[in-house]
Every structure is written in C-alpha cells, then in structure tokens.
C-alpha cells in the first residue's frame, strides 16, 4: 500500500470536512478498498473512516419502509432488517461472516462493483440513496460499472427502502470470488414489479424491463418463460460466457419469483 493519512470522525459534518482534502477517500468497511490498496491500484492521500459515526449506523422502520444507515454492516442488516426479509437474506449471504462484520451498505453502493449484491436490492426496490447533501433515486444513482452519481467528497449517509409486498434475491456465485456471477432481485410493489440484475452486465447493475412488464401482469415464474435475455453486453470471462450469464438471468428471475415472500 502507498501510505495515507487516517482520520476517523464521529459526525457526518466532520467526515464531510475531512473529505475536503485533495485525494481524500471515504473508508466504509474496507472489504473492497483495502485489497485494492494492497495491489497499489489506488493512492488516496487520506482515508476518512466512517465506522465511528453513530448517526450513520443501524436499521429503523419508517413510512412503510426501512432506513439503513450508510455505515451499517451487512451483519447488522441481516440481523435487524426483519421488516424486509429479502434484504436481510441478501445481506446474510454477502461474502463470508468476517466480511459481513466489516463491510457496509454505503461502501458497497459507493463502490458499485458490477458483481456486488446490494446494488440489485437498491435498484429493484427503487431505494433512495441519501447523502450528506441530497437524495438520489436508485434509478439515477447507478451509472455503470464502478460508476455512480456520487460527487467527489459525497458520502452515503442513509439508504431508504420501500418495503415490497413480496421479494427475493437469488444469487449464483462465481466459484472463486463468491461474488455474484449473476444475482437477480425481484420486488413486487403495489404499482408494479421491479427486477434488477447484478453480476451479469458489462454496464453493471441493470433493470430487466421485459420481465418487469411480464411479471407486473402475472407474478409467476411462467410469465418469464417466453422471454429471452441477450448475451450481448454480458460479461464473458473464465467463469462463463455472456450467453451463460444471460441464461442465468432468466433462471434466477424465475427462482426469485417462485421464492418471493
């Protein structure tokens, strides 16, 4: 690692001012950032740890939804997001127990790894990403692999999820990294069904709109049967072709619909 200064503020306001330094970077749980730093692929001047900010931690229910602090670990979401079972289940299967004890929802969404689990939940739920300065709708937030609407120095303080009538996340793990090779989050709301896919696309998390339309009319696995997903633009690598990933999108969507509760 290149060296950097380390700062651990205890309020959002202090974190924002610490982030004003040139080349400063926020540190969530560090479960992706620290391995990246070890490879010397990034050289921040300063890391601003968000793990000491109490107001950014925890899960609470509000206005028919749940609100998850940006510095809340996966383990905490798994344990405390019972009001949104599909979200809790997703969190309980990210990485491994030690990773879940450190990794945070804010870190995951800010990084927007194309194979991360959380982006699919945020997008399928139509979540609202709250930062220190504004609110961003999930549909506007994800802008392609490792790219988001966040501005320099902006911190995810909270994520609000409306609770669907039924939802499920189905993940097919890449056999080495155990990240999602394909992950599909299906969420059924009163006004329609949203389907978000992670792991598969070269553009990062995306909504499968054909499936959404079909499922909004008929929320059953059969509704997806006649649809097909193109392998074009899907990630093709050592672990599977774009066509294979496209196939998995459909399989996992059907499974998610069947399992949705």
């Amino acid at each position: 690692m290149y060296n950097f200064d380390f700062e651990k503020p205890s309020t959002i306001a202090d974190a924002v001012s610490a982030m004003a330094a040139e080349e400063a970077q926020a540190l969530g749980g560090g479960q992706t950032l620290i391995p990246t730093l070890k490879q010397r692929l990034a050289s921040p001047s300063k890391l601003v740890s968000l793990s000491g900010i109490a107001e950014m931690k925890g899960v609470c229910e509000a206005d028919g939804g749940i609100s998850v602090g940006g510095a809340t670990t996966h383990a905490t979401v798994a344990a405390e997001a019972g009001a949104y079972p599909a979200l809790a289940a997703l969190a309980s299967n990210i990485g491994d127990p030690a990773v879940r004890n450190r990794g945070t929802i804010g870190g995951s969404l800010a990084n927007n790894d194309p194979a991360a689990c959380y982006p699919s939940a945020a997008l399928a739920s139509g979540a609202t990403i709250e930062t220190n300065s504004r609110e961003i709708a999930a549909d506007d937030y994800f802008q392609g692999m490792f790219t988001t609407a966040l501005e320099e120095g902006e911190i995810i303080t909270n994520v609000r999820f409306p609770i669907p009538e039924a939802a499920s996340y189905q993940k097919f793990e890449q056999p080495a990294s155990r990240f999602a090779m394909v992950g599909v989050f299906v969420a059924k709301y009163v006004d329609g069904v949203r389907v978000a896919v992670t792991g598969a696309s070269e553009d990062g998390v995306f909504r499968w709109t054909e499936a959404e339309e079909a499922l909004s009319g008929n929320f059953s696995a059969d509704a997806v049967e006649g649809l097909s997903v193109s392998g074009d633009g899907m990630i093709s690598d050592l672990h599977g072709s774009g066509d294979y990933r496209a196939h998995l999108v459909k399989v996992l969507t059907k499974r998610a619909v069947a399992a949705a509760s």
Partner: peptide, 14 residues
Amino acid sequence: IAVKSCTMLAAEAD
C-alpha cells in the same frame, strides 16, 4: 466479532 485482520487498518482498532 470476527474480522479479517488483513483487511482492517490497525488505526481502526484503536
């Protein structure tokens, strides 16, 4: 709680 000490800064454990 269990953590991977290779993926946590020493300063975080202050």
